[in-house]
Design a protein around this nucleic acid. Sequence first.
RNA 1: GUGGGCGUAGCUCAGCUGGUUAGAGCGCCUCGCUGUGGCCGAGGAGGUCACGGGUUCGAGUCCCGCCGUCCACCCCA
Length: 425
Amino acid sequence: MSKELSSPNGTHDVLPPQSRRWEFLIGTFSELARRGGFGLIVQPLFEDVAVFNRGIGEGSEVARKEMYVFTDRGDRTFALRPEGTAPVARAYVQHHPTPPWKVWYATPAFRYERPQAGRYRQHHQLGVEVLGTDDPLADAEVIALAHDFYTAIGLSNFSLLLNSMGDRECRPAFVDTLRGHLQSRVADLCPEHVATASENPLRVIDCKKPQCREVISQGPVLDDHLCEACRDHFGAVGDALDAMGISWIRQHTLVRGFDYYNRTTFEFVSHALDGAQNAIGGGGRYDQLVEDLGGDPTSGIGFGSGIERLLLARVAEGISDDGLDDVRGLDAFVIDTTRDVRVTSLISSLRHAGLAIDRAYDSKSMRSQFKVADRSGAAIALIIGPTELEKNAVTMRWLRNDNDMEPVSVAWDDVARTLKRWRGK
RNA sequence: GUGGGCGUAGCUCAGCUGGUUAGAGCGCCUCGCUGUGGCCGAGGAGGUCACGGGUUCGAGUCCCGCCGUCCACCCCA
């Protein structure tokens, strides 16, 4: 058993019927993104490591110790994507699309961390990015899309946390002030952040340790240092959210883990999930990222949301998966004891007619084929034995107890039509 | 990177202070019922007790190691 091959630590196979929930999430997201004017982007799973080192920042936790970095046979250094935004910015630089450029994606993301509940080495994100505008309405629409998506998949017990990180006009001054404050109180910080305090003071802001919180609460607040442009921008985002009826909470300590963020940052947290893994999605504005990757100055805003976390949140909120769980959505199951080629042809024609049909294999007895049919969740059995074959007919019968309609004989030419009628299609 | 819990059948698990051929429920297969599933009954397949070493007359059980996995910290989705 121990020698059996298995999926790597922190990765998982998603099998039916569980994978129906994935289809549901991805399908819902794709539809909402389409309605928002976003087009699908499909990208490589690995990129030149510079995309991430320059993009999310070499000082960030993720770039420092969580990336899957490897060299290929040509000695090029790549990294499996730890997130979705930097690669989109890289694509923008490479292809020069006409702004505003709105794309959505569904992608795996890889981070070398110790796995635990809601955190995996390969997880999956649904997200969108808008490049080429710094209009606060874009921020609001991106946030609204996330909000509407969560609602559409049944979530209600969550909050939107919103903050502004300032921009390159006003943030440096704040960071200096903050660094000064932290250094004056360095003895009171948690050990973890003693070094961080001078290197990347912003990181300390969202530390959850009481001693750091104490120091931070007595320090400067970013909001007081925002320049007029940032203040106006943030106000416009909030106003637009209010206009859409989306409530939000200002959280001054919201500092996200990637260095490319400026101005708007946000995070959706589920109250149904406890522990540290309660963020179901997050994102923000990144007005220097494209430049950092070698492109012309281009603003951007986007968010990503973890599929696994969303599914956990749905379970935690007690959302029913009726209609997703057990059914493969089969219209009919064919029970055939003849193995006549005409049955193969019939099944093919029913599928061409848009019906979902399955059948048993391996010449099982009629009795055991019925068991397989029952297990398949199909609504209707199409029975073909020697008697039916002779008449070019099938016996149609309901498999569910909630319908006691008598079996009827139907000619092959009429099976598709009758099946559609019975199924209300 | 740090710290804990757990590895026994396909799945969920029980196996007392070490004691003969290792158990249950569910699932699977066959049959009762030659062409009718679900319910019921009978039977069956399926385990080097994660792996390696040690203690012992004897180890699923105790000790050491190792691997896997889950959970927590850090950080994130």
